[in-house]
Simulated scan of single mutants.
Amino acid sequence: MSTTPPTGPLVTRADLVADLRATGVEPGETLLVHSSLSALGWVCGGTVTVVQALLDALGPDGTLVVPSQTGQLSDPALWAYPPVPEEWWELIRATMPAYDPDTTPTRGVGVIPETVRTWPGALRSAHPQTSFAAIGPGAAAILADHARDCRLGERSPLARLEKAGARVLLLGAGYDSCTSFHLAEYRIPAPLVEVGRPGPDGWEVVTEVWIDSDRFDELGYDFERDHGIRRAGVGAADVRLFPVADAVAYAERWLPLHRPREEEISGPARLGTRPRT
């Protein structure tokens, strides 16, 4: 057990609500939150307090949305953190449990989304790798009909969030986690990939659009500069707040100029994908 004293500041639910409102979070809005608990400081009550504060700031008419991705439901041949022996691959493909929105845990999106996913009344979308979870009166409409062959495109919650005028809150998280940029990848020429994952009837392979967040930090820097995005603070964390639609529109212009097609094809695999040849 660690004997290292915690680092501050000490942050309470009331502190978080006050900071969120000062940042510009409005009651009744729909908010897509990417988060880092550790960036906030020492939060009294941990993830539960953070979710409570977000719901307080949004009020009863607001809707909280988070990514609840499950990248572990992917082809073991492409795992790297850590890899598994090649002789295990076929058995893993044959025995890996299929996605269940009620029981499959999130992975790679932080601990706050897992708390949202299990919150009373929370809903979750149907995609087996790139689902979203939400709480609030707008949750059902945003999450409905998330197509199994459309991770983050027009038939995903991202497009509905854009249409609904939702905003993104980067709560101690960087632009590398800004999923809204991925919607732009579906609107520009992009290569297709084969995505392997466990399905309800066994291992399945579907064709999808290639997605890659490797340069999203650079994209986000330019977006923030050109749109005058104001940085604020919640607890000890840096935060940014901006419309989903603005992020998508900017990425649609930025990506074709800064990420040539050859780079997309040769880039590292994401969420169990391999480029088609």
Rank of each mutant, 00 (worst) to 15 (best):
G71K: 09
R107K: 04
L73T: 03
L73Q: 06
W79N: 01
G71M: 04
P97H: 05
T70I: 02
P67D: 01
R107A: 03
D102C: 14
Y99F: 15
A98T: 12
V84K: 07
T106R: 11
D100F: 11
W79H: 10
W88P: 04
W89G: 04
P76I: 08
T103A: 05
V84W: 04
E90G: 15
G110A: 10
A77D: 08
P82R: 13
P101E: 04
A80Y: 13
E86V: 12
A80C: 06
R93A: 05
A98Q: 08
S74K: 03
L91F: 15
T106I: 05
S68D: 08
Y99V: 10
W88V: 14
P97D: 08
V109G: 04
R107V: 06
T95G: 09
G110T: 09
Q72C: 09
W88Y: 15
P82C: 06
D100H: 11
Y99T: 07
Y81N: 15
D102R: 13
S68E: 03
V84E: 03
W79D: 00
T103P: 00
P83G: 08
E87D: 15
T70Y: 00
T95A: 11
E86K: 12
T106K: 06
V109R: 02
R93F: 04
A77G: 09
E86C: 12
Y81H: 15
G108W: 03
A98K: 04
E90Q: 14
E87L: 14
G110C: 08
W88A: 13
D100E: 03
G110F: 02
E86T: 14
I92N: 09
L91V: 15
Y99D: 00
E86D: 14
L73E: 03
P101T: 03
V109N: 00
G108L: 08
I92P: 02
T103M: 06
P82L: 07
L78E: 07
R107N: 10
G71R: 09
A80E: 13
S68Q: 07
L78M: 06
A80H: 08
V109P: 00
A94E: 10
E87N: 13
P97F: 08
T70E: 00
D75W: 11
G110V: 04
E90A: 15
R93D: 06
P105W: 00
Q69K: 05
A98L: 02
E87T: 14
R107P: 00
L91R: 15
T70P: 01
E90I: 01
A94C: 04
P83T: 12
G108H: 01
P76S: 12
I92T: 10
M96H: 13
V84I: 15
G108F: 06
D100L: 10
R107E: 10
W88G: 02
M96E: 11
Y99Q: 07
S74E: 00
L91C: 09
D102P: 04
L78I: 12
D75A: 10
D75C: 13
A98N: 05
E87F: 15
A98P: 02
T103R: 13
P85K: 07
R93I: 03
P76K: 10
A77N: 01
V109E: 01
